Simulated assay, not measured.
Amino acid sequence: MSNQPIPGRMTAESQDGVTVFLIGMRINSFRAVRSWWPTFTAMPRMLRELSKEEDSGLLGYQMLLGGPRLTYVVQYWESTEKLLAYASQPDKEHRPAWAAFNRRMREGKGKVGFWHETYVVPAGSYESVYVNMPAFGLGAATGVVPVGRRGDRAADRLKPAV
């Protein structure tokens, strides 16, 4: 993915439904490195694994910092079914990381926090615009097209594809 701005107004190419998964951790005690470091390093391993597997269902992601204590990832998935399938596969990175995280949570007594949210977004229920930006967010996950192809106004882009 290029980090160069794309001139003009672009929108995400995808017009299909999408599942948006937000997941993050909060460091409640910086000194408790053994509580939060394994959690911090587990997510990149999972994202590498998912990115290598062509049919994983992960369309793309963005890793973000929410201040000095909070780190999170915005993930775009083809479907909720593929997200849940990955989470429950015993031979993938997620299951052992989740089990280890739960052990550390019990032992760490609140030194690290964890959260996630899942949003199922039907086709026609989202729109996007990127002005003089590199591909970002959903646009990075699905590709971008000039805004005019999907409608010049946000209201036009929010209509379901025909």
Rank of each mutant, 00 (worst) to 15 (best):
R104D: 05
M105C: 06
S125V: 00
E54G: 02
H116Q: 04
V112A: 06
G60P: 07
G124H: 00
Y76A: 13
R106L: 11
S128K: 02
Q62T: 09
V73A: 10
E53T: 15
Y86I: 00
D91L: 10
Y130R: 05
A99S: 13
Y61T: 07
P122R: 06
E117T: 07
Y61I: 07
G113K: 01
Y61E: 06
A100E: 14
G66Q: 03
Y130N: 06
Q89S: 14
E81A: 13
R106P: 04
W77V: 00
G57H: 03
L58P: 00
V73Q: 01
Y130K: 03
P96T: 11
G60H: 03
G66C: 05
V121S: 03
P96I: 09
W115Y: 14
K92Q: 15
D91G: 12
G57A: 07
L70F: 11
E78T: 15
G67P: 06
V73C: 14
V131S: 06
P90K: 14
F114M: 13
E107L: 13
L65C: 03
K82E: 07
E93C: 09
G113F: 01
L59N: 01
A97Q: 11
K82A: 06
L59W: 00
G108T: 02
F114W: 10
R104Y: 06
S125I: 00
E127K: 01
G113M: 02
F101V: 04
V73I: 13
A87D: 03
S88C: 14
H94A: 10
T71M: 10
Y61Q: 05
V120I: 07
A100Y: 05
V112L: 05
E107A: 14
P122L: 05
T71E: 08
E93V: 14
L83S: 01
T80V: 13
T71C: 10
E78I: 05
A123F: 02
Y61D: 06
W98E: 09
Y76H: 13
D91A: 15
K92W: 08
E53N: 11
G108Q: 04
D91K: 14
F114E: 04
A100R: 09
E78H: 14
K111D: 12
M63R: 10
D91Q: 12
V112T: 14
K92T: 11
A85N: 13
A97D: 07
A123I: 08
